[in-house]
Write a protein that binds this DNA or RNA. Sequence first.
RNA 1: GGAUGGGUGGCCGAGUGGUUUAAGGCAGCGGUCUUGAAAACCGCCGGGCCUGCAAGGGUCCCGUGAGUUCGAAUCUCACCCCAUCCGCCA
Length: 432
Amino acid sequence: MHDIKAIRDDSSAFVRGLTRRGLGDAQALADGLLVQDKALRDLLVRLQTDQARRNDASKLIGQAKAKKDEALAASLMAEVAGLKESIQQGEASQRELEDALKQALAVIPNIPADDVPDGADEAANVPVAARAFGKAPGINAPKQHFEIGEALGLMDFERAAKVSGARFVYLKGDLARLERALGAFMLDTHTQKFGYTEMAPPVLVKSPALFGTNQLPKFEEDLFRTTNEDPFWLIPTAEVSLTNYVSDEILNEAELPLRFTAFTPCFRAEAGAAGRDTRGMIRQHQFSKVELVSITTPDQSNAEHERMTDAAQEILKALDLAHRVVTLCTGDMGFGAKKTYDIEVWLPGQNAYREISSCSNCGDFQARRMNTRFRNTEGKVKGPVHTLNGSGLAVGRTMVAILENYQQPEGSVAIPAALQPYMGGKKVIEKL
RNA sequence: GGAUGGGUGGCCGAGUGGUUUAAGGCAGCGGUCUUGAAAACCGCCGGGCCUGCAAGGGUCCCGUGAGUUCGAAUCUCACCCCAUCCGCCA
């Protein structure tokens, strides 16, 4: 969420940033916000003047009563009584104006960082040459992952449809184990090589948490929720649970950065994706993912973003999976991001690079929504922290990549060396 | 789900209607002393917002919301959360 004071101080930066994102009416939006802001501040000046008079007079009433000066007390009481109504009205107006302003701010996306390339959609994303890794393996007539998995008898979409409908899958035998192995391998890598703290977080959360990480109020249709009056929501990503771990807190600068990782199921309604990726495991209502979240000071977040992307890439390198990294352009970035790197893994069966991780620096955008600040070593509150999140990696899609890149002509799938210890030393996945 | 007890500043904790700007302690920061440190002593020490060039001034916040009152941390109502016990349960 944006800071209204920053918009007040420099509305042109705000307008420029949103225009780069492709919002056509950014100037009108800013003007409207500033009108609301001015109305609120004018009201506060009036209201606080009244409150000050009431407080002074009330104090004098106490003193007059102590001196038994009933006449003075009575006249002061009459004066304060007259203020009462206007104060109550003012307080109600304050609430309305503040709520309206917050609502307006809550649906405005973050401003892109200066070094984010301009562009309307994914066609304008820019490859990061230095981060490219590996070469597409030469596979003759490559099969898609679901063909491989079903032929092995280890992947069952039909029965999943019977039980849960479209966009679910049963994994069996070594593929079920592979999911668990991937989760363990990723967690071990992030905790041991990159200093992340492993978490086992809630996957049902309350609305304020989803407001904190931008899913609410704007993207409600992407989420599942329970039917209680005060509902729980199923997390679409562990970013929600891990980032909100520090909501409503003032952290000490000395304990930053905080780095959290978790292996969790994720749930997405995929409301706007009808007809896309309908076959296979690429787009499911439920999938598992290892998530990375960092909480940093403002001056650390850019370096942390590179480091987090390194950590995510490290998994693909260890699995020897060809991939590339692109910097998302202004028009393709998520709502809360200042800058995002997508990691795209090569899928021989699709003959294409597909997203397997997205690492974003959100700057202070989520921290302001969550009310998370930090205090320096002198004890002074220095303002909102910065938050970053990234997939490290999407486990289902990693399995897809392994199946397609390690497929053997006769239908079996080699297990990457780094995973073999997690698969009981097994080297190949074969038909059940 | 039932019963009881609780929610106060970074932490612990006092405070049952005005004369208080939420006592006191711990932690933190600065200083005295010391070769250095500890101890002791002295001082500083919550957050948001409005206003102001600044110094400063004002206002709101004692779980949340509504109410009573000239005035609420304190009284009333509703709700949320936590703890303990009981019931149920993986």
